[in-house]
């Protein structure tokens, strides 16, 4: 059972690192440092996906969260005036307690939800080692075990098949949601043509305090 011990140790190490990164996210004064800690946490989550034999999800986790959401966060930080974290970035006093309560409630809801998850096909859920299908074929195993083994071995394909058959509606709704997000962002952030036209077109960035342009675009 050497593998199980190695796996446990790895899990504990990754979980501990993830916790540290999460703490760093909350406690960092500097916003970019906080975002970096968050990236570290995303990476730990990707490692956990690998340990759960979901390498497709691990790759997606890195692609979406580290490759895209982190960039979005950084650009978001560059939009704010407070990039150094010198001013108060943390919550003010009266908001601390409600924040703590809300966080604990969310934690409780997640723990309850994950532990009582019902798998959609009616088979026993993945949680709990006894019900986990083996990657090695066993005699007399139920049909869902073979199905799940296929899902583990070629996750991209099975996810695709499920998307296009059982979850077709959810799939299209996801497309609609993405479009809505795009349209919403554009509508919120975009200034009207008239306003934009009045801005000097060559200024790429303006300092927060002075009106003097620091850099000019290539055009």
């Amino acid at each position: 059972m050497g593998e199980v011990v190695v796996a446990r140790i790895l899990f504990l190490a990754i979980a501990a690192l993830g916790l540290l990164a999460a703490l760093g996210t909350v406690l960092s004064r500097n916003l970019v440092h906080a975002a970096l800690h968050l990236v570290g946490f995303f990476f730990c989550v990707a490692c956990l996906f690998v340990m759960l034999e979901a390498e497709f999800l691990a790759a997606v986790q890195v692609l979406i969260y580290i490759g895209a959401v982190a960039i979005l966060l950084m650009f978001g930080i560059m939009l704010t005036r407070n990039t150094r974290g010198d001013d108060a970035t943390s919550l003010s006093g009266p908001w601390r307690l409600p924040g703590l309560v809300a966080g604990l409630c969310l934690f409780g809801a997640l723990v309850f939800g994950i532990n009582n998850a019902v798998s959609p096909s009616g088979a026993s859920p993945w949680a709990g080692e006894a019900a986990r299908p083996s990657l090695v074929e066993r005699e007399g195993e139920p049909a869902w075990a073979a199905e799940r083994r296929r899902a583990v071995e070629d996750m991209g394909r099975v996810v695709g098949e499920e998307f296009l058959t059982r979850y077709a509606m959810a799939f299209e709704l996801a497309g609609l949601l993405l479009t809505a997000a795009l349209v919403g962002a554009v509508a919120l952030a975009h200034r009207d043509e008239v306003g934009a036209a009045e801005l000097p077109p060559t200024v790429e960035a303006l300092p927060a305090d002075s009106a003097e342009p620091v850099g000019t675009a290539a055009s």
Binding site: I64, I71, F75, M78, A181, A189, A205, A208, S210
Partner: peptide
């Protein structure tokens, strides 16, 4: 001269959003 870590224009953010989508 002046502050280095300045506020950038919203355009960068819109491109980032489109990239995420």
């Amino acid at each position: 001269h002046g502050e280095t870590w300045v506020r950038f224009r919203i355009q960068y953010y819109i491109y980032a959003i489109m990239f995420v989508v």
